[in-house]
């Protein structure tokens, strides 16, 4: 069964575009990445899936249940980590965790205690006295303590220090190995590259690519670094050109023979041609609007 399935999901805020015709499928047990910069429509997609905002058109289901008609059943199986964790003033961490468990009609004491220990979170602290990162930890425990079948994580590592990010992804990997589906929304591409099997790229409310992370990274575009001099002016397929003291580097998506021919006319001491990382590919998708790969 598909954990998440959206068909032509569209949301407009009045006349303003939220998302348009978003069609996605996330398989059960998958760790799926959702990439896009701020304002691309990642949070709108998530909020629509969680029933916080109504959809304008299209259809979506989670574990086969319609997001509009079976919202409570869906949320019972979902753990959601928002990008910005805000709680009620005056409450202690343990009270927030208990409130979350009570709203789910579950006893999550032991799971919460274990997670607090792993994330080094003091349950006796007041939430309004916590730093942004520590509030994020509270939200992580709220999202995980009831052992959800689907984890929806929106910019999960913002505010967490590198060690805590490592621990967090360790926990997520464990949950994923135990069978939980993970939907990871982020603009940090290395996070997606390290942790996800498949990913979709969203641009101005539209999905412009959806494939395995490996396939998304497969592109004709290459990162070329040279030491020496070459005349690249007016050459098709050269982007992101940076000159430095004794050389240059650039992204190249044109004819390789043509590039080699041009370079051979210059004075090259050293050259490396590598696959670009996901970050560079992402920029490529954004500049081209996904029209070419």
């Amino acid at each position: 069964m598909d954990a998440i399935r959206t068909e032509l999901l569209t949301k407009y805020y009045g006349k303003a575009r939220g998302i348009e015709n978003v069609s996605l499928t996330v398989k059960e047990g998958e760790c799926f990445g959702f990439i896009g910069p701020n304002g691309a429509g990642k949070s709108t997609t998530i909020r629509t899936l969680l029933g916080m905002i109504s959809l304008t058109s299209g259809h979506a289901s989670i574990f086969g249940m319609d997001i509009q008609r079976e919202r409570e059943k869906i949320l019972n199986r979902v753990g959601y980590l928002p990008s910005e964790a805000v709680f009620y003033d005056g409450m202690r961490v343990r009270d927030v965790l208990k409130l979350s468990a009570d709203l789910r009609k579950r006893d999550c004491k032991s799971a919460a205690a274990g997670l607090c220990q792993r994330l080094q979170l003091d349950p006796s602290r007041k939430v309004d006295e916590l730093s942004f990162g520590n509030r994020k930890k509270v939200a992580i425990v709220c999202a995980l303590q009831h052992n959800p079948d689907l984890l929806i994580l929106d910019e999960p590592t913002s505010g967490l220090d590198p060690l805590m990010q490592k621990e967090f992804f360790e926990v997520i990997r464990e949950r994923n190995q135990e069978g939980a589906t993970v939907f990871l929304s982020s603009h940090i591409l290395s996070e997606i590259q390290r942790n996800c099997n498949r990913a979709a790229i969203i641009r101005e409310g539209n999905i412009i690519a959806c494939n395995s992370v490996e396939n998304l990274a497969k592109t004709k575009t290459r990162r070329v670094s040279i030491h020496g001099k070459a005349e690249l002016e007016g050459m098709d397929g050269v982007r992101d050109l940076h000159n430095f003291v004794d050389g240059m580097h650039f992204l190249y998506s044109g004819d390789v023979n043509r590039l080699l021919s041009v370079l051979s006319q210059g004075n090259i001491q050293d050259i490396s041609i590598t696959e670009p990382d996901l970050e560079e590919i992402f920029l490529h998708y954004y500049e081209k609007g996904g029209a070419s790969r």
Binding site: E72, N76, V86, S100, L103, R104
Partner: peptide, 14 residues
């Protein structure tokens, strides 16, 4: 106003 709606309404309650 307090931005707690996201916390409350993502729990399984109508």
């Amino acid at each position: 106003k307090g931005r707690t709606a996201e916390f409350l309404l993502t729990h399984p309650i109508s």
